[in-house]
């Protein structure tokens, strides 16, 4: 790991100021992705801005018909939170299935969303529930937020403060985990929301995406059978030592069926 300067601002304004002032700064949240990347020297920021001193970014509250989760809320906190368990149980389950307990004790929702790993779990929930990413500047709909592999709509000096999830009528998540890391080889999030049915897939392509054909089928009949025969093309899917693109395409249908079954409860 190359040397850097360390800063722990005590307000969001100070954090944003540091982000704009320094030469090549980076935010550190849980550090579960950034620190390993820095050890490999794939990232070498001049300055680390630690959000660990900002309690206002931690916590979960119900606001109207949504849950607002602070950017620095850990996966473990989301998994065990009673409000999340009652209002969006699929989200609590998703958070509880990330990595391992020690990763969940440090890793945060803001870090996961900002990082936009193609195999991360949270992006499926954000897109599947039609969530909004709240930053120090604006709100970005999940549909516009995830751009490509590790690429989001965030500006360089923009900081995620929270994520707002509309509470669905029902939702389910099912992933086929990589047996070593638990990242999604394929994960599918299905939700019946006030705005219609949404189906979001992670792990399969460079970035999370929706499957409209499945959404339409589920809108007329919300049952696992509705998606059982819908196949997605394998052409532009990821292919690696863990799974070929054809296998991933197959898994999308299987995980979608399981996610619908999970949503039915």
């Amino acid at each position: 790991m190359y040397a850097f300067e360390y800063h722990k601002p005590s307000s969001v304004q100070d954090a944003v100021a540091a982000l704009s002032d320094k030469e090549d700064p980076k935010i550190v949240a849980g550090g579960m992705t950034l620190l390993p990347t820095m050890k490999q020297r794939l990232a070498s920021p001049s300055d680390l801005i630690d959000l660990g001193g900002l309690p206002e970014l931690v916590g979960i509250r119900e606001e109207g018909n949504s849950l607002v989760i602070g950017a620095m809320t850990t996966h473990a906190e989301v998994a065990r939170n009673e409000t999340v368990q009652a209002r969006i149980p699929a989200l609590a389950k998703l958070a509880g299935g990330i990595g391992d307990p020690q990763v969940r004790h440090r890793g945060t929702i803001g870090g996961s969303v900002a990082n936009a790993d193609p195999a991360a779990d949270y992006p499926a929930a954000l897109l599947g529930l039609g969530a909004a990413v709240i930053t120090n500047q604006r709100e970005i709909a999940a549909d516009d937020f995830f751009v490509d592999l590790f690429e989001t709509a965030l500006e360089p000096s923009e900081l995620i403060t929270a994520v707002r999830f509309p509470i669905p009528q029902r939702a389910g998540y099912s992933k086929f985990p990589n047996p070593a890391s638990r990242y999604a080889i394929v994960g599918v999030f299905v939700a019946q929301t006030d705005g219609g049915v949404r189906v979001a897939v992670t792990g399969a392509k460079g970035s999370v995406f929706r499957v409209t054909e499945m959404e339409q089928a589920l809108a007329s009949n919300f049952s696992p059978e509705s998606v059982a025969n819908i196949r997605v093309p394998a052409d532009d899917m990821n292919s690696d030592i863990h799974a070929s693109s054809e296998y991933r395409a197959h898994l999308v249908t299987v995980m979608a069926k399981r996610a619908v079954a999970a949503a039915e409860g």
Binding site: G31, M32, K39, D50, P101, Q102, H105, R106, S181
Partner: peptide, 28 residues
């Protein structure tokens, strides 16, 4: 040293974490 094996687990404020993936500064 890559956050995988858990040989480095310690408790920080009552939670188990991987101490190879946490800066001493973050644990101040």
């Amino acid at each position: 040293d890559t956050s995988q094996c858990g040989a480095c687990v310690v408790h920080v404020n009552g939670n188990s974490v991987k101490s190879c993936t946490l800066l001493a500064a973050q644990a101040d």
